[in-house]
């Protein structure tokens, strides 16, 4: 008999830790009453979830996308178009946005997954930019003016809250947990193994029965779906969207960076990265950036460079390597 599988134990522990974290975070509003701070919390949770989604395609499956703003924007626009033009509740809107984004991801992936390495990265950037340009010119969707989300009063049914940010906070927490949970389940599923195999060596994966192209498509669709949920949420949260505020390139970057900082292709990387990066960016922005002097950009850029050069495996990656060393 094999002794108890350390990996399965670790998986159970991870789940317990996650549940404890969620419970603790859920209590934070008891302490954090400041609206600005709550705002930062919501954004942190949202980016944790978004980066977790990005991590599925780029971290686990290894297809680095810098065009996820496209899916984020798709979620935001589908949600708000359905809400403002047809009165469809954002809950359905977000689901529809997720499906639209997954479809777009498949359509984008179909030609692009034949591209390797940098070719693929560039394609994601350019295609997202093309989407941005289309939204800027699409009159029905408000073009450059965007969409002002009409006020329909506080209600969970309409997913709209004017008096307090807390409902958004709890949704963001649930969203982050679900994204984490999806990743957790994937890790020990056939898809998860296939994706990592595709990332490490596509040719070897094919010879072992992995349908590489289909694997990439599945990762892209799932990643885009979750990202779009985030877009729909964000649209309701800020209650105004335009191409600049939901589809600009900086979103693509902001979805990638927490995972890069925390550890690409790791379960905890995106959450850890977001917990550090988002408050930090918000802080530098409010302290240094207000005057538009560029300090915030400099700090931010140095941080990005520092992460990339100093900790290529990310915080979680480095920690788990150290733990393996000391265990061995």
């Amino acid at each position: 008999m094999q002794d108890a599988d350390p990996r399965l134990n670790a998986r159970r522990n991870n789940l317990v830790i996650a549940c404890v974290c969620v419970a603790l975070i859920a209590c934070l509003p008891l302490v954090v009453k400041d609206v600005y701070a709550q705002n930062v919390l919501v954004l942190t949770l949202m980016y944790a979830a978004l980066s977790q989604s990005w991590n599925i395609l780029s971290g686990y499956c290894g297809q680095i996308s810098l065009g996820h703003a496209l899916y984020f924007g798709a979620g935001a626009y589908v949600t708000e178009l359905l809400f403002t033009k047809f009165g469809v509740a954002p809950w359905f809107g977000m689901a529809a946005g997720g499906l639209v984004a997954a479809t777009i991801a498949a359509a984008v992936g179909y030609p692009c997954f034949r591209l390797k390495g940098h070719y693929f990265v560039i394609a994601t950037i350019v295609i997202a930019e093309a989407g941005y340009l289309l939204m800027l010119n699409w009159d029905y969707a408000g073009a450059a003016m965007g969409i002002d989300v009409p006020v329909r009063g506080d209600s969970w049914a309409k997913f709209q809250f004017l008096r307090s940010k807390l409902p958004y906070f709890y949704f963001a927490l649930a969203f982050a947990f679900v994204a984490w949970l999806v990743t957790w389940m994937i890790e020990e599923s056939r898809w998860g193994y296939w994706w990592r195999a595709v990332k490490d060596n596509a040719e070897a994966a094919e010879s072992l029965g992995v349908e590489v192209f289909r694997s990439k498509m599945a990762a892209a669709a799932l990643s885009a779906f979750l990202t779009a949920i985030g877009g729909g949420f964000y649209a309701q949260f800020v209650s105004y969207i335009d191409p600049e505020s939901v589809m600009s390139f900086q979103f693509s970057l902001l979805m990638a960076l927490p995972a890069v900082l925390g550890g690409i292709g790791t379960l905890w990387g995106p959450a850890v990265g977001a917990a550090i990066l988002i408050p930090l960016t918000e802080l530098t922005r409010s302290f240094a950036g207000g005057s538009g002097k560029g300090f915030d950009l400099i700090i931010y850029g140095l941080l990005v460079m520092g992460i990339a050069l100093g900790r290529p495996e990310g915080i979680v990656g480095a920690l788990s390597r150290r733990m393996r060393r000391s265990a061995a």
């Binding site: 940098h118 970057l253 990638a256 990005v304 460079m305 992460i307």
Partner: peptide
């Protein structure tokens, strides 16, 4: 690959 991308991006 990732490091290159983000190092130059950060720059």
């Amino acid at each position: 690959g990732m490091v290159q991308i983000f190092a130059t991006f950060g720059l």
